[in-house]
């Protein structure tokens, strides 16, 4: 979703020249630009992408540098009531230090990479698979619907945790498991079990929309199924999809953390030159055990996740409004 926005301009012009003389996309883009909340969301999302990509140049410290004796330092600006340890913050550690004296701020910056990848890549897979399954099941109904929905029931029912244990064990040592400290494996695993929720919602919506007059009309003039699904049904069920997609972002970031809680987390980096060093999820876990000593170990990643989600939600809402055919011309 986000990538579509970032790279959105060029396809717009292409479409404009070849296909859509009514300037649907230009119109949408204008509406999007005028939507302040959406623009704020876009800025937040872009900012986090920037941090994820250029983290190593932005971080003030080596995220793995252990500062002996400087553990659990609070941020220098932290109010006195939030400090339980009697320690005094050091201005060079903006968010304080962690259990073994590493700079929380730098770790947060490095962690953006894993968390953004873990949030975005599986979300795209989940969305594509879920939407197609749901659309097909809802539109064709009958046996197709029944079989597809039984498959989702099965995927929904079997314990994904167990699935992770097995996948992590079986594939950890292999090339796939090594790829990006296990990040690749992680998002394949998350994507495999995550698409069912979207599929069911899309199916429910499709069942309802396909009985509407305009779909009937389109069908009666001989529109083929694929066209009806993509031109008539999909645009009308975008809102719930956007919400579920925006919400799957934090859910995946937290899923990565919870997997760490259960011993299935990412392989921690041992050198800051590695592509993935740490993640917000593991930072939150570590922060939870140390909540009394240094609450900012927990607060910093939690706020980061909240900002990302806020950004995606604003942007998503704006996109939906911009793409709404009924809003055309009102912008």
């Amino acid at each position: 979703m986000a990538t579509a926005t970032v790279a959105g301009r060029r396809p717009i012009e292409n479409t404009l020249n070849t296909k859509a003389p009514t300037s649907l996309w230009v119109d949408a883009w204008r509406r999007l630009v005028r939507n302040k909340a959406a623009m704020l969301g876009l800025v937040i999302v872009l900012l986090f992408f920037f941090v994820a990509i250029f983290g190593p140049w932005l971080a003030p410290h080596d995220p793995l540098q252990i500062n002996s004796g400087q553990d659990f330092l609070p941020p220098a600006w932290a109010p006195a009531w939030s400090i339980n340890t009697g320690k005094v913050g050091d201005p060079q550690f903006f968010m304080g230090t962690d259990t073994i004296g590493r700079d929380v701020w730098s770790r947060l910056i490095y962690g953006a990479r894993v968390s953004m990848v873990v949030a975005i890549v599986p979300t795209i897979i989940i969305t594509v698979v879920g939407v197609i399954t749901g659309l097909v099941a809802g539109f064709f109904g009958g046996t197709v619907d029944n079989l597809l929905m039984r498959v989702t029931d099965i995927v929904y029912s079997f314990p994904d945790l167990l699935f992770f244990v097995v996948i992590m064990f079986a594939l950890r040592g292999t090339f796939i498991g090594e790829l990006g400290n296990g990040v690749f494996l992680l998002f394949v695993a998350l994507a495999l079990v995550g698409w069912v929720g979207i599929a069911r919602v899309v199916r429910g919506q499709t069942l309802s929309i396909k009985e509407k007059e305009f779909v009937e009309a389109s069908r009666s003039i001989g529109g083929d199924s694929r066209r009806i699904m993509s031109k008539h049904i999909l645009p009308n069920i975008l809102s719930p999809i956007i919400i579920i997609v925006a919400f799957s972002v934090p859910r995946l970031i937290i899923a990565e953390a919870i997997l760490g809680y259960l011993g299935l987390g990412l392989r921690p980096g041992t050198s800051s030159s590695e592509f993935f060093v740490t993640s917000w999820g593991s930072m939150m876990l570590e922060g939870q055990t140390a909540i009394n000593a240094q609450p900012f170990m927990l607060l910093a990643p939690a706020i980061a996740v909240a900002l990302v989600v806020m950004g995606f939600t604003f942007l998503g809402d704006g996109l939906r409004d911009a793409l709404d055919p009924r809003m055309r011309g009102t912008g």
């Binding site: 252990i66 064990f169 259960l262 011993g263």
Partner: peptide, 21 residues
């Protein structure tokens, strides 16, 4: 992570980490 850092600093050996359930 601390342990691995020890070998890296004191011995110059890069040790990889492998967390398992």
């Amino acid at each position: 992570e601390f342990l691995v850092n020890q070998w890296k600093t004191n011995l110059g050996v890069d040790v990889k980490l492998n967390p398992v359930e």
